[in-house]
Amino acid sequence: MTTPARTPGAVPRQDTGTDPARSAAPVVSLRGASVRIGGRTLWSDVGLDVGAGQFVAILGPNGVGKSTLLKVLLGVLPPASGEVRVLGTAPGRAGQRVGYLPQRRSFDPSLRMRGLDIVRLGWDGDRWGLPLPWSAGRRDAGRRIAEVVELVGASGYAHRPIGRLSGGEQQRLLIAQALVRRPELLLLDEPLDSLDLPNQAAVAALVGRICREEGVTVMMVAHDVNPILSRLDRVVYLAEGGAVTGPPERVITAETLSRLYGTPIEVLRTSDGRLVVVGQPEAPARHTDRHTAGGRP
């Protein structure tokens, strides 16, 4: 199930931008990509290279198409133009080498499936036919599921019905589900959304640890960059006209964002190092509200 080509840690953990001289093949690359939904162009001319083992945040105001970018990478939505490559093939072809956590979904409290069963679906839920009860694969499955549940720290509650677990617990199990097949690329859509602050910090730490220790490339759509800021290798800031990518300290600046959006934008840094972006087009109030009301002084 592991791919020999994967060499965690072989790529220097620094931003290389869109440098064509980069030695290792990028895990994700976009060239002049654009996407249209219902006749409206969400973003266009986006170029991006993500190297192996990087932790990348996808940022931008509401409705700019951050989740859509993940859908393009998954091959669920074709790009309107440009070239998109994921793990060296067309999007959607990489199969189990890509793990995906969709935008916040909570399970119905009445759903009678254990957390373990949800993780198990990530292991073999896409296979046809019945598993043979005496096969060796069954033991492997049990071992890998226990391992990944342990990795996300969910061993204490994974046997309970998923609908009865808290948001943070469900999120950990869903990350386990996305990880169970040892993907090389993990696409996470706002995994911290609707979690309380301690859980945001804990899940962010978990994702950072997975990225570093398991060598998984992580692309995370985030509403608030702060919980993951210290762990990020680079950010992708999306706008209608395109995107800027680079290390957070270079991208999340008043100068870069003002140029990207063509309108004056301020980036404030609080005394504890949190970044607050003020004046973004499209629902800026909500964006900043959510961050500044976060409770930390």
Binding site: L74, V76, G92, G95, Q96, V98, Y100, L101, P102, R105, F107, L111, M113, I118, L121, G122, D124, G125, D126, R127, W128, G129, L130, P131, Q177, A178
Partner: peptide, 23 residues
């Protein structure tokens, strides 16, 4: 149902992820 069972279960419980996995 024996043939479809597992993907059907996946699609029933978790349609978004199942679709992303090619179900």
């Amino acid at each position: 149902l024996a043939a479809l069972g597992r993907p059907l279960l996946f699609a029933s419980v978790d349609p978004d992820v199942a679709a992303a996995r090619g179900v």
